[in-house]
Amino acid sequence: MLTCKDASHLVSHSQDRTLGFRERWELRIHLWMCVNCRRFERQIGLMRRLLRQSARQAEAEAADRQLPAEARERIRQALPSSNGTRTTQPPEKRPSS
């Protein structure tokens, strides 16, 4: 018999990998009998769903975020300059596509 603690572990694992047959079966039986773990499972799932929804929104809001100007200048300084001091040459020919 699974304890609630075991069941909560399996609920979390199920967000990362497919549970084995036995794990799935034991978890199902436990959830069927235990209202607390049923709530836990639902809430962990809900948390992921709300997070993904929020993260997409936050990402859309950050879409115009830019590399700060000082950092850009610093990186430019760190890169070899474009007027001939660079040693890397472009390939002779681009592979045919």
């Binding site: 590399l67 700060p68 950092a71 610093r74 990186i75 760190a78 890169l79 070899p80 660079r86 890397t88 040459q89 472009p90 390939p91 681009r94 592979p95 596509s97």
Partner: peptide, 26 residues
């Protein structure tokens, strides 16, 4: 973290420059 993010961008461009000849272009 902005500082780490700026650093990896710089490292990426430097690495890109070194491996440019291996970039298949596809």
């Amino acid at each position: 973290d902005s500082a780490s993010a700026e650093d990896v961008v710089q490292e990426t461009l430097l690495a890109a420059l070194q491996t440019w000849d291996r970039f298949a272009g596809n």
